[in-house]
């Protein structure tokens, strides 16, 4: 899995940090910081949840399998 983020769209809800604290953090203004763009297998569900719950569609998940 590879994770892409678009920081400019971030509204600092912090939802991603609650879902996947080992993959995402926030700077002092609350804007998303990616800690690990290629998260380990154990993190993948949390990352997918973070992407789904983000209120600004900042996080895009690219699965390794398939045409990606």
């Amino acid at each position: 899995m590879k994770v892409h983020i678009d920081e400019d769209k971030c509204v600092a809800s912090g939802a991603c940090v609650l879902e996947a604290p080992e993959v995402f953090d926030q700077d002092d203004d609350g804007i998303i910081v990616m800690l690990d763009g290629q998260p380990a297998d154990g993190q993948e569900d949390a990352v997918r949840r973070a992407a789904a719950v983000c209120p600004a569609a900042v996080i895009r998940v690219q699965e390794w399998s398939g045409e990606a």
Binding site: A12, G14, V17, L18, Q26, D27, D28, D29, G30, I31
Partner: peptide
Amino acid sequence: WNAAKLLMPFRRELL
């Protein structure tokens, strides 16, 4: 107010 990160502990407690 411009405190997204400072809010996090408060938010966790509320949640």
